[in-house]
């Protein structure tokens, strides 16, 4: 049943061809910008702290094009509209778990974005500037695991903020807060290894780092193998905590809908 919701979301996105083209171009330009920045700052320098320009180009592609398509705004707006129009109450009548339903729908979005945006952008930029292969087959495989974890954590973070809108009545502000936090702490613009040590010491334990920084660092082989397992474990821990948080918020929200009628 949930697979059908995913397929449905996928088809909905297909119906808006212009939107698909535009997000492709928008994303392409953004990755270009990030690479241009790294090329500019690396002018005349071979490597900084053991990181080469080629590393940073690959980092920009993965962190911006691959993990950058996580669209929390889309999810939060879906939720916001459902809350404001009262459609959310309709879901309570159906034999399904609303957060799971949203997760399924956004897997559909993810599939669409992967095909329409991520793959073409990665291909074009990869051919133009060169993308490095994973540090090893092992690293490649663990990247896939981290990639899935990244999507899950992103989804849970967006879901948490979206559900908070039940009480704060403004999804708009929460969306901006999350965008801001993600811009810095996910490492999507600047990898944590270039952070000032004090800031890195904090950021490396916050769940946001699992959204862009850790998956890319794993791919590039910048983490020690022993470390990788621990980091994966911490990431899974965060996912579990967030999932529990979402579950709790949802049951409170549901209670609120039932008692107060929305």
């Amino acid at each position: 049943m949930y697979a059908a919701f995913a397929a449905n979301a996928f088809q909905t996105r297909l119906a808006y061809r212009n939107q698909a083209w535009s997000s492709f171009f928008g994303q392409l330009i953004q990755v270009f910008a990030r690479i241009a920045i790294w090329m500019a700052v690396y002018a005349g320098v071979a490597s900084v702290d053991g990181i080469t320009l080629a590393d940073m180009i690959t980092y920009a592609i993965l962190a911006t094009a691959v993990m950058g398509v996580w669209d929390h705004a889309l999810l939060m707006r879906d939720l916001d509209v459902a809350i404001k129009t009262g459609d959310v109450a309709v879901f309570l009548l159906k034999p399904l778990h609303y957060p799971l339903y949203l997760f399924a729908a956004h897997c559909g979005n993810l599939a669409f974005n992967t095909l329409a945006v991520v793959l073409p952008v990665t291909l074009i930029i990869g051919v133009t500037y060169g993308i490095q292969p994973p540090a090893s087959a092992m690293h490649g495989a663990s990247f896939l695991g981290f990639w899935a974890l990244s999507f899950a954590i992103y989804f849970l973070l967006a879901m948490t903020c979206g559900l908070l809108a039940f009480w704060l009545m403004t999804a708009h502000s929460l969306e901006w807060f999350l965008t801001g936090i993600m811009a810095l702490f996910s490492g999507s613009i600047l990898p944590l290894w270039f952070f000032p040590p004090a800031l890195a010491a904090v950021a490396q334990y916050l769940p946001f780092a699992w959204v862009a920084y850790y998956p890319t660092a794993v791919y590039l082989g910048k983490l020690e193998p022993a470390e990788t397992g621990l980091i994966l474990a911490i990431g899974l821990g965060w996912a579990a905590v967030l999932a529990a948080g979402v579950g709790l918020l949802w049951s409170r929200a549901r209670h609120r809908i039932v008692v107060q009628g929305g």
Partner: peptide, 12 residues
């Protein structure tokens, strides 16, 4: 949807 193209350049 065209705003995403605008904001791409806007970021540059």
């Amino acid at each position: 949807h065209l705003y995403s193209i605008y904001f791409g350049f806007w970021e540059l």
